[in-house]
Design a protein around this nucleic acid. Structure first.
Lengths: 209, 209
DNA sequence: GTCTATATATAGATAGAC
DNA sequence: GTCTATCTATATATAGAC
């Protein structure tokens, strides 16, 4: 049995609660009681709730972003014609790799990302774009290379539609999974959700004008 | 200049703030100060914040739902084979009609709907399904008729992905329209946005398994 | 119906002992 | 680093005068 330090205990509890309930609806008291640490330790270790939120997401971004960068540059080095679907596949590997990094990591990361977009966490969007804007640009470029028949504007629209689909799906994943379980007796997890959503967005992006 | 009663002032202010910031992040104080009414009047007129949230949505649902019901029954009366795209077209009319009902009504309604799903407003989902479950079932049925090769569950998932796409697009519609104007010299309005998103979601919904 | 004043609860953050 | 106790701000909700 490994000793887990207070900082990590807080990160783990906060991550789970933020993903489940959103940032605004998760109090520091709830986090510290679940983590079984003292309330004051959050401010001691992180300074504020905002910085805790950023720290929770940073732990995943530091794993995910390099993975995405690698996948994208490998894609660019192949001689084959780059297909639309290959570009989206660049996301799947690094996303699923988060499950090796941490139990249910893929789930947590996507839910957190969804919460970050949907809730008005301006500081969070600022944090992400200033730290990781570059890789987002190269992903955009890859989609353009894969869809030379589409105008930049058309790609712009469709990628935003895609983002919306994924973010909303992840943010409401708990409700969706509950309904699927109740109505269809079907137990779906986050990986199942990803596999369900990819054909949907892929069809939308590559459909003719 | 028309006199607007307190109840309506509250509804108008609440609607705008809820759509912009979400339910949890909008306090009654913010609502009443923007509406220029007394704080206590919210509880006098609506009883509680929860009931105010329901009232804000109900004002739109009472217009939207009958419109959708009419469009769906007209669709069922035609002799032609019902196409997937016709089913979605049933939504467009009633949605755009909300702009005649109220300024920026379409956007507001879709944003509110999205907030309701994403935030943990259990009471809101209960409110919607108990009051308007019937029409949702018939819309669902129409989509099934148009896609006889798809299972009920598959349709459930794809319709929710669709909802996500639309809601997110509406939530960020202001930014999207601004970018399109600046980067592509293309003036798009809400109706244009809806017309752009329909091929995307239509392709996603009717794509083969 | 509308106001002031206030009750009550809960939030994030901190001071200071240990 | 961790604790208790507390500060300060803000939330929803209500009582009671007008």
């Amino acid at each position: 049995m490994q000793k887990i330090d207070t900082k990590t205990k807080i990160l783990n509890a906060a991550e789970q609660l933020f993903a489940e309930r959103g940032f605004a609806d998760t109090s520091l008291r709830l986090i510290t009681s679940q983590a079984e640490v003292n309330l004051a330790s959050v401010n001691y270790h992180f300074g504020s709730k905002k910085e805790l939120i950023q720290a929770v997401l940073a732990r995943y971004l530091e794993v995910f972003i390099p993975g995405l960068e690698t996948a994208l540059s490998e894609l660019n080095e192949t001689d084959e014609r780059i297909d639309q679907r290959n570009v989206f596949e660049c996301l799947v590997g690094p996303l699923l790799a988060l499950n090796a990094f941490k139990h249910r990591g893929t789930t947590a990361f996507l839910q957190l990302l969804g919460r970050g977009y949907v809730e008005n966490q301006g500081h969070l969007r600022w944090f992400i774009t200033t730290h990781y804007g570059e890789v987002m640009d190269s992903f955009n470029q890859a989609v353009q290379n894969a869809n030379p028949h589409l105008s930049k504007e058309e790609i712009f629209w469709r990628l935003h539609f895609t983002l919306g689909t994924v973010v909303f799906t992840m943010a409401s994943s708990k409700a969706l999974i509950d309904i699927a379980k109740a109505d269809f007796k079907n137990e779906v997890d986050i990986e199942g959700l990803i596999r369900k959503v990819i054909p949907f967005i892929s069809a939308g992006v590559s459909t003719a004008k």
